[in-house]
Amino acid sequence: MENNNNFDMEGAKKEYMLKHMLYAVYLLGGIIMMLLKFTNIDYIAKLEGRALVQYETLSAVFTVIGAVGILRMLKLLKNEKLLKKYITRSKDERNIMLSNKAMSIAVNISFIAALILDVYYLPINITVSNTIIYFACFILFVYTVVYFILNKIM
């Protein structure tokens, strides 16, 4: 019986690191946001009250996500057995199919929820209602563009 165990560990490590470089972007983004707070640029000067709290929270969240992601990445790179399991899971065709289906269902649910909220807010606050419907249309537009592009290149 043939055993398909040709696992390229070095190649897998490189691929894994590249894919998870996004965490470095999160971390850098969070740190830059924190540092910008000490500058006196126009954008920061205009932030006050809830907007400032939101800005600080976002910068903290990005920093934490980035730091945790990078630490997890380093831990996995040191443990080849765990790394192999992780990569097998991420490349598993059934998992990819489930992930795509879940994303598709999430987009549909979000769109329907947006329409319901839009109708609900219509008599209460027209600005909120408009924001919701514009956002829902934006999601649809992005989906259409991505679908068109993928259809052409595949």
């Binding site: 055993n3 398909n4 165990n5 696992f7 097998t88 899971r89 490349k91 598993d92 065709e93 059934r94 998992n95």
Partner: peptide, 14 residues
């Protein structure tokens, strides 16, 4: 079997 095929055990079960 999962390891031999390069898939997860959940896929073999399914």
């Amino acid at each position: 079997l999962a390891e031999a095929l390069g898939v997860t055990r959940q896929t073999v079960i399914s």
